[in-house]
């Protein structure tokens, strides 16, 4: 199995030592997608509750216009001097992130509206990738972010989530659950550690 032309000596020695240390084989358990795992009567409701439990906000809105209106009501958005949106018809941009070469230039971004693929009800996480986002720093550097997901795209748990996503199709993909936080000083929860100080999920019912 070892292809000497690809693996360097250090790897071959490493693996040889390892092979002689390995215990007898044990089976790999099957992982069903459904059956044993937690589901909810109302996944959307649970997703909303969990997003709030992890310090975020989740708004279900009818369409893009309603999402836009909900955004306008957020003080962090209306106050934002430097902002951008990578979601069609929701929000507006004061600059074009695609025209930025160096992600360091994004450091003054106050608010970014970004696409998410789907939500996970059990933990309030949203799956995001770099597909329509030119710099992954946009998920972490702005002071505030909003993630826009189609309202019907909410799975019950992580097993269902991994069943539908192929993380290897993107150099970057992440579950983001709520705003950045820390409890490293005396276990006191503080929102806004390094990343976004607030995270709003806009779950849009009729996307187009």
């Amino acid at each position: 199995m070892t292809d000497d032309s690809i693996l360097p000596d250090s790897a071959r020695h490493f693996l040889e030592r390892l092979r002689s240390a390995q215990p007898p084989a044990t089976p790999l358990p099957e992982l069903p997608v459904t059956g044993p795992w937690l589901t909810f009567d109302n996944a959307a409701e649970r997703f909303q509750a969990m997003t709030e439990a992890v310090g975020g906000r989740c708004l279900f809105v009818a369409d893009a216009a309603a999402a836009e209106a909900a955004l306008e009501e957020l003080p962090a958005w209306s106050r934002a001097a430097t902002r951008c949106s990578l979601v069609a018809n929701i929000g507006s941009s004061t600059f074009d992130p695609a025209a930025v070469d160096d992600p360091h230039e994004l450091q003054h971004t106050d608010f970014a509206v970004l696409p998410g693929e789907f939500g996970v009800a059990e933990n309030g996480a949203v799956w995001v990738t770099d597909e329509q986002v030119p710099h992954r720093a946009l998920f972490f550097l702005p002071q505030h972010i909003a993630l826009v997901i189609p309202a019907e795209q909410i799975v019950h748990n992580l097993h269902e989530a991994y069943d539908r996503l192929r993380p290897q199709d993107h150099r970057f993909g992440a579950f983001i659950s709520g705003p950045s936080k820390t409890a490293d000083i005396e276990q006191s929860l503080v929102i806004g550690a390094h990343g976004a100080r607030s995270l709003t999920v806009l779950a849009v019912q009729n996307r187009f």
């Binding site: 992890v54 933990n123 993909g173």
Partner: peptide, 15 residues
């Protein structure tokens, strides 16, 4: 005691 960490980032290749 959190349902998931805030960020669970999957790296598949360099930027």
């Amino acid at each position: 005691g959190q349902p998931i960490t805030t960020y669970s980032t999957h790296f598949h290749g360099p930027r």
